[in-house]
Design a protein around this nucleic acid. Structure first.
Lengths: 112, 112
DNA sequence: CGTATTGCTACAGTAAGTGTAGCAAGGAGG
DNA sequence: CCTCCTTGCTACACTTACTGTAGCAATACG
């Protein structure tokens, strides 16, 4: 897990095409990315609280995702400690909110 | 890459919590899941056309994702061949459309 | 000082994804 | 019938990504 040059959104798989949506889809399509954003949607969390919220996921990945999401400008580390969403990150989260409602409908169709 | 019992949404990592949103977040947080839904948003594609649309991603994963998405009820294999979104899948895609606009704004902030 | 947090990292082991090749099934044309 | 081509899909060796456990340096509290 080497460190990439922190050049904004770093090199992501989908960005070969140059289309921002692909880069975003790729970034969010990594393990725990969506989950992290989701868990931070309300209040900031410390790295350990976030880990607890994410089913005790490995700190290695969590840290990697956190770094990526920070480089992407969605997440920031507050001066008093603890990770929180940036304005942009909150904005992205808003985009995902309808997903919650959809998940419920989906579950009632396939799960039951 | 063993096959799980096809019980609707199968066992996904996030579903330990029982919350549908976690299962959905986990399913969509796998490689190429979001991308596949995105590429199918307009017209159905054959497996090979889809592969071409997804930067020639490995057919192994693509097939795995396709199976998962089919079990989840988002994608179906048309009788005349070719993969397309189900009504539910189209619905999910609708949820993601604002992401496109967001991606553009995001890119203009971090990329330039 | 001790101890208890914080963010973060090392590292061996396992799971997941890649890339290339190729199969069986179905049509189209000869 | 036999070829030729395309379909969905799979095998398999290789590489990358993630897991799980442990532990570091820095900061704060007593």
């Amino acid at each position: 897990m080497a460190k990439q040059p922190a050049s904004g959104a770093r090199r992501v798989r989908g960005s070969r095409s140059g289309r921002p949506i692909m880069a975003l889809l790729d970034l969010l399509g990594r393990r725990w990315s969506l989950r992290i954003l989701w868990e931070l949607r309300e209040d900031p969390l410390t790295s350990r609280a976030l880990r607890a919220a994410c089913d005790e996921a490995s700190p290695t990945v969590l840290q990697a995702r956190l770094t990526e999401l920070r480089e992407a400008g969605f997440v920031e580390l507050g001066d008093g400690g603890g990770y929180g969403l940036t304005a942009l990150g909150r904005d992205l989260c808003e985009t995902f909110m309808p997903l919650h409602r959809f998940a419920e409908r989906w579950h009632s169709k396939t799960g039951a």
